[in-house]
Protein backbone atom coordinates (compact mmCIF):
# COMPACT_ATOMS: atom_id res chain seq x y z
CA UNK A 1 0.00 0.00 0.00
CA UNK A 2 1.60 3.25 -1.10
CA UNK A 3 -0.65 5.56 0.75
CA UNK A 4 -4.03 5.78 2.35
CA UNK A 5 -6.01 8.75 1.13
CA UNK A 6 -9.16 9.94 2.66
CA UNK A 7 -11.46 12.06 0.59
CA UNK A 8 -13.24 14.14 3.13
CA UNK A 9 -10.87 16.55 4.77
CA UNK A 10 -8.69 19.29 3.45
CA UNK A 11 -5.02 19.72 4.04
CA UNK A 12 -4.78 22.56 1.51
CA UNK A 13 -2.29 22.81 -1.31
CA UNK A 14 1.36 22.73 -0.34
CA UNK A 15 3.43 25.73 -1.44
CA UNK A 16 5.49 25.04 -4.54
CA UNK A 17 9.23 25.09 -4.00
CA UNK A 18 9.60 27.82 -6.60
CA UNK A 19 7.79 30.33 -4.42
CA UNK A 20 10.78 30.48 -2.11
CA UNK A 21 12.56 33.80 -2.38
CA UNK A 22 15.97 33.59 -3.97
CA UNK A 23 18.21 35.59 -6.21
CA UNK A 24 16.80 36.14 -9.66
CA UNK A 25 18.74 34.02 -12.11
CA UNK A 26 18.30 32.23 -15.38
CA UNK A 27 20.14 29.61 -17.35
CA UNK A 28 20.14 28.64 -21.01
CA UNK A 29 21.80 25.59 -22.51
CA UNK A 30 21.44 23.86 -25.83
CA UNK A 31 18.92 21.03 -25.47
CA UNK A 32 20.72 17.85 -24.53
CA UNK A 33 23.99 19.64 -23.65
CA UNK A 34 23.76 20.34 -19.94
CA UNK A 35 27.58 20.57 -19.67
CA UNK A 36 27.82 23.33 -22.29
CA UNK A 37 30.53 25.97 -21.78
CA UNK A 38 30.98 29.12 -23.84
CA UNK A 39 32.79 28.43 -27.07
CA UNK A 40 31.29 25.00 -27.53
CA UNK A 41 29.25 24.05 -30.54
CA UNK A 42 25.70 25.37 -30.76
CA UNK A 43 23.87 22.61 -32.64
CA UNK A 44 21.38 23.69 -35.26
CA UNK A 45 19.53 21.93 -38.01
CA UNK A 46 16.35 21.55 -39.93
CA UNK A 47 13.47 20.93 -37.52
CA UNK A 48 12.09 17.44 -37.94
CA UNK A 49 8.72 18.77 -39.02
CA UNK A 50 10.38 20.98 -41.66
CA UNK A 51 10.66 24.74 -42.03
CA UNK A 52 13.37 27.24 -41.15
CA UNK A 53 16.57 26.09 -39.43
CA UNK A 54 16.42 26.02 -35.66
CA UNK A 55 18.34 25.42 -32.46
CA UNK A 56 16.60 23.92 -29.43
CA UNK A 57 17.40 25.37 -26.01
CA UNK A 58 16.45 24.69 -22.46
CA UNK A 59 15.77 27.65 -20.22
CA UNK A 60 15.50 27.60 -16.43
CA UNK A 61 14.63 30.41 -14.05
CA UNK A 62 14.99 30.94 -10.32
CA UNK A 63 13.87 33.76 -8.11
CA UNK A 64 10.97 35.11 -10.12
CA UNK A 65 7.56 34.16 -8.82
CA UNK A 66 4.35 33.17 -10.51
CA UNK A 67 5.83 31.95 -13.77
CA UNK A 68 3.31 29.14 -13.62
CA UNK A 69 0.70 31.79 -14.34
CA UNK A 70 2.50 33.22 -17.34
CA UNK A 71 5.82 34.33 -18.67
CA UNK A 72 7.39 35.69 -21.79
CA UNK A 73 10.56 34.02 -23.00
CA UNK A 74 12.45 35.79 -25.76
CA UNK A 75 15.28 34.04 -27.58
CA UNK A 76 17.64 36.23 -29.59
CA UNK A 77 20.52 34.88 -31.64
CA UNK A 78 23.15 37.38 -32.65
CA UNK A 79 26.17 37.01 -34.94
CA UNK A 80 29.09 38.42 -32.97
CA UNK A 81 31.30 38.88 -36.02
CA UNK A 82 28.87 40.41 -38.48
CA UNK A 83 26.74 42.42 -36.05
CA UNK A 84 23.68 40.63 -37.38
CA UNK A 85 20.49 39.33 -35.78
CA UNK A 86 20.10 35.70 -36.78
CA UNK A 87 16.86 34.99 -35.03
CA UNK A 88 14.41 36.59 -32.62
CA UNK A 89 11.65 34.41 -31.25
CA UNK A 90 9.29 35.13 -28.35
CA UNK A 91 7.14 32.57 -26.58
CA UNK A 92 4.26 33.43 -24.30
CA UNK A 93 3.84 30.47 -22.01
CA UNK A 94 3.60 29.17 -18.49
CA UNK A 95 6.51 27.39 -16.88
CA UNK A 96 6.55 24.41 -14.56
CA UNK A 97 7.96 24.47 -11.07
CA UNK A 98 10.28 21.46 -11.04
CA UNK A 99 10.34 19.50 -7.81
CA UNK A 100 12.80 16.76 -8.74
CA UNK A 101 16.18 16.54 -10.43
CA UNK A 102 18.82 19.17 -10.93
CA UNK A 103 16.21 21.87 -11.56
CA UNK A 104 14.20 21.25 -8.40
CA UNK A 105 12.94 24.59 -7.13
CA UNK A 106 13.34 26.33 -10.49
CA UNK A 107 10.95 27.17 -13.30
CA UNK A 108 11.46 25.09 -16.39
CA UNK A 109 9.60 24.06 -19.52
CA UNK A 110 10.05 22.00 -22.61
CA UNK A 111 12.65 22.82 -25.24
CA UNK A 112 12.29 26.23 -26.83
CA UNK A 113 13.17 26.53 -30.48
CA UNK A 114 15.20 29.45 -31.76
CA UNK A 115 14.16 29.80 -35.39
CA UNK A 116 16.49 31.27 -38.00
CA UNK A 117 13.91 32.52 -40.47
CA UNK A 118 15.37 33.66 -43.77
CA UNK A 119 18.55 31.60 -43.43
CA UNK A 120 19.49 28.38 -45.14
CA UNK A 121 21.33 25.68 -43.27
CA UNK A 122 24.63 26.44 -44.99
CA UNK A 123 24.35 30.17 -44.17
CA UNK A 124 24.65 29.45 -40.47
CA UNK A 125 27.53 27.00 -40.29
CA UNK A 126 30.45 28.29 -38.26
CA UNK A 127 28.98 31.58 -37.16
CA UNK A 128 30.01 32.82 -33.73
CA UNK A 129 26.74 33.52 -32.04
CA UNK A 130 25.40 34.76 -28.77
CA UNK A 131 22.01 33.45 -27.78
CA UNK A 132 20.17 35.40 -25.10
CA UNK A 133 17.11 34.20 -23.25
CA UNK A 134 15.09 36.91 -21.53
CA UNK A 135 12.35 35.75 -19.21
CA UNK A 136 9.75 38.28 -18.08
CA UNK A 137 7.05 37.60 -15.52
CA UNK A 138 3.56 39.02 -15.60
CA UNK A 139 4.65 41.96 -13.45
CA UNK A 140 7.33 42.95 -15.91
CA UNK A 141 10.29 41.68 -13.91
CA UNK A 142 12.94 40.22 -16.16
CA UNK A 143 15.95 38.02 -15.88
CA UNK A 144 18.29 37.12 -18.72
CA UNK A 145 20.93 34.55 -19.49
CA UNK A 146 23.09 34.08 -22.52
CA UNK A 147 25.64 31.78 -24.01
CA UNK A 148 28.14 32.06 -26.81
CA UNK A 149 29.25 29.37 -29.20
CA UNK A 150 29.78 28.31 -32.74
CA UNK A 151 26.74 27.32 -34.76
CA UNK A 152 27.39 23.78 -35.88
CA UNK A 153 25.12 21.48 -37.89
CA UNK A 154 23.52 18.74 -35.82
Amino acid sequence: MLGLLWWGCAAGPAPTPCEAVGADEATIVPAGADDFVDGDALPYGRPPQGGSPYSPYRVGVGGLEGLGDGASVRLEAYDLDEDLVLGDTTYELRLVCANVGDNAGRWVGSDLHQRFDGFELEDLDGRNARVTATVTDLSGNSVAAWLEGVLTPM
Binding site: W6, C9, V96, V100
Partner: peptide
Protein backbone atom coordinates in the same frame (compact mmCIF):
# COMPACT_ATOMS: atom_id res chain seq x y z
CA UNK B 1 12.37 13.84 -26.86
CA UNK B 2 13.33 11.40 -29.58
CA UNK B 3 15.80 9.53 -27.39
CA UNK B 4 16.24 8.52 -23.78
CA UNK B 5 13.66 8.28 -21.06
CA UNK B 6 13.31 12.03 -20.73
CA UNK B 7 13.71 14.30 -17.73
CA UNK B 8 11.11 14.20 -15.02
CA UNK B 9 10.38 17.80 -14.00
CA UNK B 10 7.64 17.14 -11.50
CA UNK B 11 6.72 14.03 -9.61
CA UNK B 12 3.89 13.89 -7.17
CA UNK B 13 4.75 12.02 -4.03
CA UNK B 14 1.65 9.96 -3.56
CA UNK B 15 2.61 9.34 0.05
CA UNK B 16 2.37 13.11 0.51
CA UNK B 17 -1.37 12.80 0.11
CA UNK B 18 -1.52 10.67 3.21
CA UNK B 19 0.91 12.97 4.97
CA UNK B 20 -1.17 16.00 4.02
CA UNK B 21 -4.18 14.29 5.47
CA UNK B 22 -2.41 13.43 8.69
CA UNK B 23 -1.04 16.93 9.04
CA UNK B 24 -4.08 18.90 8.09
CA UNK B 25 -7.12 16.78 8.70
CA UNK B 26 -9.09 17.53 11.79
CA UNK B 27 -12.58 18.29 12.92
CA UNK B 28 -15.92 16.79 12.25
CA UNK B 29 -15.19 14.90 9.09
CA UNK B 30 -12.32 12.95 10.54
Amino acid sequence: SASGEGEVLFEHDVQADADAFNAGCSGEAS
